[in-house]
């Protein structure tokens, strides 16, 4: 029983972290078409924010809930800065954006290495996340439950924001037909900036979650960026529900493979599956139907 249940639960938590890392990308890449390779470094900024908030507040019980909104704003502002200073000049040059943001990522990594101790910094788990809940005989760590809840809240908030607010409608209008949106009086520049702010801010939240799972150091972003892009592509670009399903599936498949084989082999097998899937269904799980000709 343990062999069946524990990878399912562990994998769901792994998928939830992947989802948090991919959510922001599904906005900036999926909605705006910007390949932001510095997204992993925004995640790193979120994790270092969690550390700094912990240094100020002291108690980890309180600092993690406080760090979540703070990390959102800090990473969001970094994203906004990137959009205003660089990305807005290259909306129609995706390959250039890719190369430039790789460079920005490296600069941010080196900056973190200069500012913080090179071994990385410790972020402590809040006391209320100590312990496990028993599910079908498996002691499921509360920390994993927390990651899943956090991802659920973020997805729900993002989907309400996109579907039911005036601003969300403006984003969707801009994505579907930029010229027509401008004709109706929407400031597409404002839409771009705010979308980028929110997308990067979500990476900050993912960073807080990641700081509770692994090390907080200058390199941490690099391990999330490629899987996050794959998840967004596999889910269907511009599709929130696709990202959710793909992240969960990758997490669970990874965990089962890791349980049956080894951690290294699991990485290889799971991503071979994603690549094969994209070969068979290049548009991803779900697609947006538009009347646009491009």
């Amino acid at each position: 029983m343990d062999a069946l249940i524990s990878p399912l639960l562990n994998g769901s938590a792994q998928g939830a972290l992947l989802l948090l890392a991919a959510l922001g990308l599904s906005l900036t890449f999926g909605q705006m078409g910007v390949i932001n390779m510095a997204h992993g470094e925004f995640l790193m900024i979120g994790a270092f924010t969690a550390y700094l908030v912990q240094q100020v507040i002291g108690s980890s019980d309180l600092s993690i809930p406080v760090a979540l909104p703070v990390a959102f704003v800090v990473a969001g502002l970094f994203g906004l800065l990137l959009e205003v200073s660089i990305i807005r000049w290259m909306y129609h040059r995706p390959l250039d954006t890719l190369l430039v943001t790789v460079g920005v990522g490296l600069i941010l990594q080196q900056a973190a290495l200069q500012i913080f101790p090179s071994q990385g910094v410790p972020v402590e788990k809040p006391g209320w996340l100590n312990g496990q809940v028993t599910v079908f005989g498996y002691d499921w760590p509360l920390r994993q439950v927390f990651t899943i809840l956090l991802a659920t809240v973020c997805v729900a908030a993002l989907s309400v924001w996109l579907k039911s607010t005036a601003f969300g409608r403006r984003i969707r209008a801009t994505v579907q037909n930029r010229d027509l949106a401008e004709v109706t009086g929407i400031s597409t520049r404002t839409v771009d900036r705010l979308t980028f702010f929110v997308g990067s801010g979500l990476a900050g939240i993912a960073g807080v979650a990641a700081s509770l799972i692994g090390g907080t150091n200058s390199q941490m972003g690099t391990q999330y960026i490629i899987p996050a892009f794959l998840v967004v592509a596999a889910g269907g670009i511009g599709q929130l529900k696709g990202t959710v399903v793909a992240a969960w599936a990758v997490g669970v498949v990874l965990s089962y493979f890791a349980y049956w084989t080894t951690g290294s082999l699991a990485q290889v097998l799971a991503f071979i599956l994603v690549i094969v899937f994209l070969q068979l269904r290049p548009q991803g799980l779900f697609t947006v139907r538009t009347r646009s000709l491009v």
Binding site: Y138, Y259, S264
Partner: peptide
């Protein structure tokens, strides 16, 4: 159990 050097997530292996 082995995990790639650049991966931090040990949850499945710890189980």
């Amino acid at each position: 159990e082995y995990v790639p050097l650049d991966k931090d997530d040990w949850t499945t292996q710890v189980a």
